[in-house]
Structure formats: structure tokens, C-alpha cells
Simulated assay, not measured.
Amino acid sequence: MREVLDVGVNGAHGFVAHIGLTVGSAISTNGSDAPGTVEYDEQAHVRVVPAVAEIPVDQVREAVRRFVKSGGARPDNITWADV
């Protein structure tokens, strides 16, 4: 099994989840106390994430770049919350 980066984009915002082999799993956090959840379409299925996981889409894109360039390391441009 390899490291996995799960990404959702919804206009100007998105989320990033990292499933790690050695560092555990985590999801992006925007540092707010936003209540509730938001829904993303993930291959014709609803993916529900905490509203605090939404970050700017530019930050999501940069996380994908870093993940690919590093060969699967957790991107360091995001604040993570363990799950």
C-alpha cells in the first residue's frame, strides 16, 4: 500500500485528506470553528467532510503538487487535523 491523497474541489474551496502509512491519517483544517459539514461529489457518491476542512483551492492545488513531487509525503503547506 502507498500513501494516498484524497482531494475535493468546490469552486474557490476544497479539502485534502492524507492517508499515511507511517504518520497516520489526517484532513486539512482552516483553523476556524465553523460548524457543520459540507458535501462533495466523489465519483457519483456523496463525501461529507467537516466544514473546518475547507481551505482555499490554491492551497489544495499546491498540496497536490507537493505530494506528487515528494513521491507521497504529506504536504507541508497545510495545517492538518488527525482523524
Rank of each mutant, 00 (worst) to 15 (best):
M1W: 13
M1V: 12
M1G: 13
R2I: 07
E3L: 07
E3C: 03
E3Q: 09
V4N: 04
V4E: 12
V4Y: 14
L5C: 09
L5Q: 03
L5G: 05
D6V: 03
D6I: 05
G8F: 02
G8L: 00
V9R: 13
V9Q: 11
V9G: 07
V9M: 09
N10S: 15
A12F: 13
H13M: 14
G14V: 03
G14W: 03
G14A: 07
G14F: 04
F15G: 00
F15S: 02
F15W: 03
F15R: 03
V16S: 01
V16T: 03
V16N: 05
A17M: 08
A17F: 06
A17Q: 09
A17C: 11
I19A: 05
I19W: 10
I19Q: 04
L21D: 08
T22Q: 11
V23M: 00
G24F: 05
S25T: 10
S25I: 08
A26W: 08
A26Q: 01
I27D: 01
T29M: 00
T29S: 04
N30F: 02
N30D: 15
N30K: 11
N30P: 09
N30S: 08
G31Q: 02
G31C: 06
S32D: 07
S32T: 15
D33R: 09
P35L: 08
G36V: 08
G36P: 10
G36K: 06
V38E: 10
V38Q: 02
E39P: 09
Y40F: 15
D41S: 13
E42D: 15
E42A: 15
E42I: 10
E42R: 10
Q43L: 09
Q43I: 14
A44S: 11
A44C: 12
V46G: 12
V46L: 14
R47L: 08
R47T: 12
R47V: 11
V48I: 15
V49D: 05
P50Q: 08
P50S: 12
A51H: 06
V52I: 14
V52D: 05
A53L: 05
I55W: 00
I55K: 04
P56I: 01
P56S: 08
V57P: 06
Q59N: 09
Q59A: 11
V60T: 06
V60S: 05
R61H: 15
E62Q: 13
A63I: 09
A63Q: 10
A63C: 12
A63L: 09
V64C: 07
R65K: 14
R66A: 04
F67E: 11
V68I: 15
K69H: 12
K69W: 10
K69T: 13
S70G: 12
S70R: 02
S70E: 02
G71F: 01
G71S: 07
G71C: 06
R74W: 04
R74I: 02
P75A: 05
D76P: 00
N77Q: 02
I78N: 01
I78Q: 01
I78G: 01
W80Q: 02
W80H: 04
W80K: 03
A81T: 15
D82L: 13
D82V: 14
V83D: 03
V83K: 05
